[in-house]
């Protein structure tokens, strides 16, 4: 019953040391890694550097810049806090080590430990011969008969003691039984008296401090633990796996569930829906949804919102995740119209441009919208069409006088990544046809091209450039080859409060009933190498001479198919929609047929 | 929920639009029931309203024969309005749906001939929404969208039409024509 606590406080320092090291060592390594590699991690991460990112930084307005600066600051403070913990931790460790070193109780306890190699002062890996010779040397020195006569009795006893130990050590290493004992119990004489105790320092358990302990325990178990657990639990409970608040998700589901065909789907409707999200209410409890709606519309129309400017930036930055949540729910309800509208709304918020036939043009910087819409002689609605004119004419059409600004606008326009479909087919890894009930995926070969590039027909890209390597691991996991492609670079979105690199959303629609059949797949890895090509449609005249397929990087997109191929043979048609979340224009919308054969 | 006795209508002050819509439906139903003087009415369509609608529609077709398009459109619109108003909510849905779809199909052609592409397009949308997926709906819809310069939408329409009816010549030629327009549209 009477536990003997750690009288000489010889065990709890080790326990504390162990606990601290377990926490501190990985933390310190991580911290060092962040501090050293952290910088270049941002720089040299897979994001390919791209001219649009730099231009986007150049065109970012001051209020967005200050907003970003404020937001970014938070991160570094957090870093400091972690440093603090590390420094404190290591000082405690230092103190403990010093305490252990100085504490003699620990020292003599240490001598209790029987270590034959130390006694014979030979290395642990020495052979029997060395052990024997070492033993012989030492025993001659320490043998009682050999000891000098004039020793004092207590010296003599120490030496005799020493001799006994040496003999024991020798036996522990050579004689079978004692070695057996030593290996099993760590001591040749068999199991030693081991003292079991609680590694708690004495001062903690004697009567006076025990009250503090009890109170400590009650506080820990009664308040602190429940507090953290409940906070963690409410946090996890309140967020869906897509990262939006449960209440927002249920609101969106309710809107979709009660959606009437007589309602018209527009971006205004999407904005109204996300304005009722729980996130906004939590961020700004004092504001009503219609205020959020107005702010979002202000953002899209690039109107200043006065003192609600920061509020506007925060909800616009948040709307990104909300629209993805809404998109996910809309695809779960198989509603294509709302899925499309959600992505269009995201584009409108990213580019701060309302959805209109001229959005592709108006998303360019320095465009004088009024002059463009009135002035445009024949209907120019796409960048491709814009690039059929020469630069000067384009300047006039867009209403840009200043040459450098025009140059920058043209750079942006020619670097907006358009997708061109080269090959599209259903594929089952390792099969040449789609067999019934197999697990196909949609394999696309696309070319990232600029709007100024001359158009050429897809079959000018030879088949061998569109083959996937048929080696084993690509058969085992066909999606591995996609992740070798570089990540998308920072997008040109100077009005968006946060830096972003965007993605394409791939929707798969069943042509029979026009409904979405699976949740969207996000494409965030594609090489933009082709954009650096000139290949201007105004200069390139005949394709055969100037066109060389080798110069073009073919991108791969693989869309997993959510359900197995149908049972019976036949042709099934699916519509694949690949919509960019960043820019107006670079969307793909085509039909792929699945020919199910034996 | 409170009931207004003299106007015999239900109302729920300050309710959501979904509840509001249900209340309207109930009110409409009760009004028609109260107005119905024939005690043993059946879900079969009221034959005198059918004949009225038919007469109006016929006159529309007559105008069509005489190449008087505007009048034709007007009298077909009247026929549709008549159907919308006269038919009681309990008259067989299948009959009302067919009747409305039939009249709209004619109205679509009249609108397209007269260049009212947006009108034609919305009627075609309605026909598709109510389950009419025949090829000629896709043909007309693609044509209307091309006339409205919505080439992307036209392409997805015609591709869907071809998915449902791969051998349709008209759809194929529309697809080629639209791809050409798209290439031009994209410069």
């Amino acid at each position: 019953q009477s536990y003997d606590y750690d009288e000489g406080s010889e065990t709890w320092p080790f326990f504390m040391l162990a606990v601290l090291c377990v926490i501190l060592v990985p933390l310190t390594i991580m911290q060092l890694w962040e501090a050293l590699a952290g910088g270049e991690k941002d720089r040299s991460s897979q994001h390919q550097q791209h001219v649009l990112g730099d231009l986007s930084e150049r065109y970012t307005g001051n209020d967005v810049r200050t907003f970003r600066a404020k937001y970014a600051a938070k991160k570094s403070k957090w870093l400091a806090k972690r440093n603090l913990v590390i420094i404190a931790g290591w000082t405690i460790v230092a103190y403990l080590v010093q305490h252990i070193g100085s504490n003699d109780a620990i020292k003599d306890a240490a001598t209790l430990l029987f270590d034959p190699y130390a006694l014979l002062d030979i290395s642990a890996s020495s052979t029997d011969r060395e052990i024997r010779s070492a033993y012989r040397k030492l025993s001659i020195k320490f043998h009682p008969d050999k000891l000098a006569k004039d020793l004092k009795p207590e010296e003599r006893s120490v030496l005799e003691e020493q001799y006994v130990m040496i003999t024991k050590a020798y036996k522990a290493l050579t004689d079978e039984i004692t070695r057996e004992n030593y290996l099993k119990y760590g001591h040749p004489d068999g199991p030693q008296a081991t003292s079991h105790g609680i590694a708690l320092p004495k001062f903690l358990v004697d009567s006076s401090a025990s009250l503090v302990m009890i109170v400590g325990y009650i506080a820990l178990l009664g308040f602190i633990l429940p507090f953290f657990v409940s906070r963690w639990w409410s946090k996890t409970q309140s967020m869906t796996k897509k990262g939006i608040h449960v209440k927002s998700a249920s609101y969106f589901s309710d809107r979709l569930f009660n959606f009437k065909p007589s309602q018209v789907v527009t971006t205004q409707l999407m904005i109204r829906w996300i304005s009722h999200s729980e996130e906004f209410k939590l961020m700004f409890p004092a504001l009503a949804p219609n205020i959020f709606e107005t702010l979002l519309h202000d953002h899209i129309n690039r109107k200043h919102s006065g003192n609600l400017q920061t509020t506007k930036f925060r909800i616009v930055a948040k709307s990104h995740i909300l629209l993805f949540g809404l998109l996910d729910i809309a695809t779960t309800f198989r509603n294509l119209e709302i899925s499309n509208a959600a992505i269009d709304t995201l584009k409108a918020l990213v580019q701060a441009i309302p959805l209109s036939p001229y959005s592709q043009i108006l998303q360019l910087p320095n465009v004088d919208a009024k002059r463009f819409v009135e002035g445009s002689v024949d209907d120019i609605r796409t960048l491709g069409k814009l690039f059929t004119y020469d630069d000067a004419k384009i300047g006039k059409i867009l209403g840009i006088e200043d040459a450098t600004q025009l140059q920058e606008t043209l750079t942006v326009a020619s670097n907006i990544p358009y997708l061109k479909l080269i090959r599209a087919e259903f594929k089952v890894p390792g099969e040449s046809v789609i067999t019934p009930l197999s697990t196909p995926h949609i394999s696309l070969k696309v070319l990232v091209r600029s709007a100024k590039h001359k158009f050429f027909s897809p079959n000018m890209i030879p088949d061998e450039m569109c083959q996937d390597e048929q080696d084993f691991d690509s058969l085992r996991d066909p999606f591995a080859s996609v992740s070798e492609q570089p990540k998308l670079p920072q997008s040109f979105a100077p009005y968006f409060p946060a830096k972003r690199s965007g993605c394409w959303c791939a929707l798969v629609v069943l042509q029979k009933d026009g409904k979405v059949i699976q949740t969207p797949m996000l494409i965030d890895r594609l090489s933009f190498a082709n954009l650096s090509q000139d290949f201007d449609k105004r200069t390139v005249k005949d394709l055969d001479k100037d066109f060389n397929p080798e110069n073009w990087a073919v991108g791969t997109i693989k869309i997993p198919f959510s359900q197995p191929a149908p049972e019976e043979k036949g042709d099934y048609f699916f519509r694949v929609i690949i919509k960019s979340t960043e820019y107006f224009g670079p969307d793909l919308d085509f039909t792929v047929s699945m020919a199910v054969r034996e | 929920l409170n009931y207004n006795s003299n106007s015999k209508l239900l109302e729920v002050p300050g309710c959501s639009e979904d509840v509001e819509m249900n209340i309207q439906q109930i009110n409409k139903l009760t009004q028609d029931l109260v107005a119905e003087n024939n005690p043993n009415f059946t879900p079969q369509p009221h034959d005198d309203s059918t004949s009225m609608i038919k007469k109006l529609f016929e006159s529309g077709l007559k105008n069509l024969q005489q190449q008087k398009m505007a009048e034709a459109l007007k009298s077909i619109n009247l026929a549709i309005e008549m159907a919308q108003r006269k038919r009681a909510p309990w008259e067989a849905f299948a009959v009302q749906l067919q009747e409305l779809q039939f009249m709209l199909k004619n109205r679509v052609d009249l609108s397209l001939i007269q260049g009212k592409f947006m009108d034609g397009l919305q009627d075609l949308d309605f026909l598709q929404n109510t389950g009419l997926n025949s090829s000629d709906v896709f043909i007309r819809k693609t044509d209307a969208l091309m006339k409205l310069k919505q080439y992307e939408l036209a392409r997805s329409e015609v591709e869907r039409g071809l998915s449902l009816d791969p051998t349709n010549i008209k759809l194929k030629s529309l697809h080629i024509e639209n791809s050409r327009r798209l290439a031009e549209y994209n410069g």
Binding site: S262, T266 | P89, Q96, D123, F126, T130, K149
Partner: peptide, 22 residues
């Protein structure tokens, strides 16, 4: 039938919205 009527009425609204949007 009433839902059908509502969808039919929506044709006018859709015409406005789309002509304005396009």
């Amino acid at each position: 039938n009433q839902a059908l009527k509502r969808r039919f009425q929506a044709i006018l609204l859709r015409k406005e919205v789309y002509s304005e949007q396009w």
